[in-house]
């Protein structure tokens, strides 16, 4: 059940970042969140680089979910 909650939230947040529904998140999509979240552009860039495991400049749903699951389960423990 925890796993399902996590996947649901990850998908929801992915769509929050990928407003155009491209299926991936580019760095500029992440920077757009600067207006909505209390994070600096530098922080958002840091978040992007941390989640972009292969460093290709695009965040796939898999990369995003993997990063989110670490956060989610560390919060629940």
């Amino acid at each position: 059940p925890g796993q399902l909650d996590m996947l649901k939230k990850a998908q929801e947040f992915f769509q929050t970042c990928d407003t155009e529904g491209k299926g991936f998140i580019a760095k500029k999509d992440m920077q757009r969140l600067h207006n909505e979240l209390p994070l600096s552009l530098e922080d958002l860039e840091d978040v992007f680089d941390t989640l972009d495991a292969d460093g290709n400049g695009f965040l796939t749903p898999e990369e995003f979910t993997s990063g989110f699951s670490h956060f989610f389960f560390s919060q629940n423990n």
């Binding site: 947040f13 929050t16 909505e36 979240l37 840091d46 680089d49």
Partner: peptide, 29 residues
């Protein structure tokens, strides 16, 4: 170890990011 420090910082920024998203979702109707 600078690498460990960078890792810990990134984790904090990630936690901050996801927490902000969580509160954004619950904060809006």
């Amino acid at each position: 170890d600078p690498n460990m420090k960078a890792g810990a910082t990134s984790e904090g920024v990630l936690a901050n990011f996801f927490n902000s998203l969580l509160s954004k979702k619950t904060g809006s109707p």
